[in-house]
Amino acid sequence: MKSELTVNGRKIELDVEPRMSLLDALRDELGLVGTHAGCEHGVCGACTVIADGEAVRACLILAVQADGLDITTIEGLAPARGELSVLQDSFCETHALQCGYCTSGFLLAATVLLRRTENPSRAEIERAISGNLCRCTGYTQIIEAIELAAERLGHRNTNEPEGAA
């Protein structure tokens, strides 16, 4: 079954079984394996991507349901090849990852928060990442990373292009 979607700015036409999740389509059909398969039933948040501006779980959307959606994955987050987004940089600096398996999900969820909320409170950050599980960090450094990114983005006197948060 056909499904036409935009992934990281590129128009893609998929031809997949109706039962294939967006997660499997991204990974197996498009080779975008930065979106991680964790629990595959909507508990862990490792597969979080951005769909039409909202953080969503790619394992809880069928590829055929994604017809017409505009998807951003971890591969589409950096402003250019070889660079990192401000948020990704902050994750590195505050040691907000250890094994890294959950990290792409956290980055996408936090990117949506930072686009929608200029100066998020700690409580707002905790709410935004409450659907993402990390078994390494204890979350403290992840929250610090998002706070650091929010501060840096706030201090920048430029209009951030879409996707570069």
Binding site: G45, T48, V56, A109, S130, G131
Partner: peptide, 12 residues
């Protein structure tokens, strides 16, 4: 509403 699931599930 804020108690319903998580932001990513409320989005869908």
């Amino acid at each position: 509403m804020p108690w319903v699931g998580h932001a990513p599930t409320r989005a869908r």
